[in-house]
Amino acid sequence: MGEYIRGVVVKLHLTPEQEVMFKQNYGCTRKTHNELLNKYKAKYGDSNNELLNKYKAKYGDSNKIPTKNELNQFLNESKKELPYLEETESTSLQQARDDLHKAFKNNFKSKRHNTPKFHSKKKTRPSFRQTIRKDKRPVENNTLTLRKHGKVTFSTSIEYLDLLNSPNTKFNNITVYYDGLNHYAAFNIETDVPEQLPLTEEYIGCDINSNKNGWLVTSERQKEFFDVDHDNQMIKHVNKLMSKCRKGSRRWKKLEKRLQKWYNKRTNQLNDYIEKLTYN
């Protein structure tokens, strides 16, 4: 339908019942990934090199591992062993299966990609992804309709609201995630409206450092710096206060929410700074 693929992120406003359902879906998606990976390792062994050698000897280097049919079989077995997975929205579990399959393919193609690992509660961002049926529009005004979860209201800018409600916009999938404080929905859409970027006819290379201080070095040997020392000091301060509290107490929970706000603020400021700098 559209010639431009774009991503739009909106903030969701959930009811208490929907929040419980969302958190269940996050957990079931993570559990599905771990169950499929565990069944695959139990069948072919834990050593990835031995696994690659078996497939290369049988199918040659052109074959991708593992096959979707195998993972789908593991998914059906997991649903029988864990009945609560049947209560979860089905396409989100299928997307977890497809993501694992893609991870195996990437690792098989290049050594730059790590082998698939188990998802932990602490290090994995809670999320799930739903596909959109053809000729279905999940957005109406500022309301998003999700399967199994019903209608959810969201807030965003007027520009993005008009884009999501445009009849020329096609929805590919929706990713819902949780940052520790709020729930968000990221739309993958196809549209005829491109992002308005002015053409400067100039080329410049940028190397963004991976540390939290936001160093950026250009090909013209120009350095840019974004100061997040205050955020880092506040994170240390709140961590120090939490260490003096009993874990799980009322004050500890308040400090935990305050700490998450500082983490999110530091991340958002750094991402916004990098986006604007590379844009300019």
Rank of each mutant, 00 (worst) to 15 (best):
N107V: 08
A96N: 04
I174H: 00
R258H: 14
Q95H: 05
K102C: 13
N63I: 12
Q94Y: 06
Q18E: 04
S127L: 00
T200V: 09
T88I: 06
K58V: 00
F108C: 01
N141K: 15
V152F: 07
I274A: 08
I204M: 12
I5E: 06
C28R: 14
N25P: 01
Y160V: 07
N209L: 08
E220G: 02
F154C: 10
L51D: 11
E190G: 00
G60S: 04
N106P: 00
T267N: 12
Y263V: 04
K276D: 09
D46I: 09
H183I: 00
K240D: 10
H119A: 10
S249F: 01
E220Y: 01
G7H: 02
W215R: 12
I189H: 06
N211I: 04
R251Y: 10
N38P: 06
R221N: 15
N209S: 14
G180V: 01
M21N: 09
K11E: 09
H119K: 15
S210T: 12
T88M: 07
L277P: 02
G60K: 02
M242T: 05
Y178G: 05
R221W: 07
E190V: 00
S78H: 04
V238C: 04
E70A: 05
I65G: 07
K134D: 07
D98C: 06
N106G: 05
L85P: 05
Q269H: 13
K240F: 03
C206I: 15
K109V: 08
S62Y: 12
S243Q: 12
K148I: 05
N182Y: 11
N280G: 14
E159S: 11
E3N: 12
K240L: 08
H237F: 08
A57D: 14
H237M: 02
E17M: 08
A185R: 02
E220T: 09
